[in-house]
Design a protein around this nucleic acid. Structure first.
Ligand code: FES
Ligand code: FES
Lengths: 138, 138
DNA sequence: ACAAATGATACTGATTTGGTATCATTTCAT
DNA sequence: ATGAAATGATACCAAATCAGTATCATTTGT
């Protein structure tokens, strides 16, 4: 039961490294060294972030990636949604059926509360906050 | 990203039905009718609940299941743990490595908070509460 | 022209989840 | 005793998701 998948995690860490880098343009090779994420997987992931407008990419000889937005503009919920879809902790069970009584199910209420809390917790958290004290340098 | 798996859901619903039933001993056949869960799957699941001491089973001709504890003694966290292991929403990424800096990772903090909230939300919730207004009759 | 970068996309392998199938054992009713 | 009707134990299977590869095309600076 994981809130955050490996891909999301990798993505966030890559973003942090790009944001922190002193180079203007960061290449996949750089990131493979700093993050130790398998190269082809990382590549796919960065391409996705580019397509989604979180990164800007430059092709050709001295190409690479930069942030398309400033760290304080990049919500991490955005990243999560990109790789995991919208956060939905509770689906009414018996999926095929229509649940007649969503109002009165106490289990559902609990799950909904947790989800609301999660949503509030993430609200407004941007890459900037995460950057502040990211571990896993090396 | 689901908090509760299908198996857990089925289990809870089966327990509710057993608890509500007027029969002393409830058989799998009864439950297949009331819950529409596939029979062999349901069987496996009830056997597990029996092994774990949540249900009591009776073999032989007029056998079946009853609750081994009263509804107010059955914590639903117990059920969740049985089928999904202990709730752990955050694993430090890069599993193989030891994460050097668990204290300062802001992402981890958020995840931990959510997990604590979830734990508190479930604390003390028993089958009895869930029973009160279980939908999906029919 | 060529090397060094990304773009696009299809494929593969591992794990987890949801579900089956089968046979053994117990017990009640006759 | 015996057989039907229940559960116990266990091995198996299929679909979905997750993690990762492989390949070829395109762009661009030198
Ligand atoms: S199972 Fe449908 S609302 Fe609870
Ligand atoms: S990634 Fe290890 S604590 Fe955040």
């Amino acid at each position: 039961m994981k809130l955050i998948t490996r891909e999301t995690d990798y993505a966030i860490r890559a973003l942090v490294h790009i944001a922190k880098s002193d180079k203007e343009i960061v290449t996949v090779t750089d990131l493979v060294e700093t993050t130790a994420v398998p190269r082809p997987f990382l590549r796919k992931l960065l391409q996705t972030l580019n397509r989604e407008g979180v990164l800007k990419s430059f092709k050709g000889k001295s190409g690479g990636f930069t942030l398309a937005l400033s760290p304080e503009e990049i919500l991490i919920t955005r990243i999560i949604t990109i790789f995991q879809g919208t956060m939905q902790l509770n689906e009414c069970m018996f999926k095929k059926d229509i649940c007649p009584n969503t109002e009165t199910c106490s289990l559902r209420k609990i799950l909904n509360n947790i989800q609301d809390y999660a949503t509030r917790s993430f609200a407004g958290v941007t890459l900037k906050e995460i950057m502040k004290e990211e571990p896993h340098e090396s």
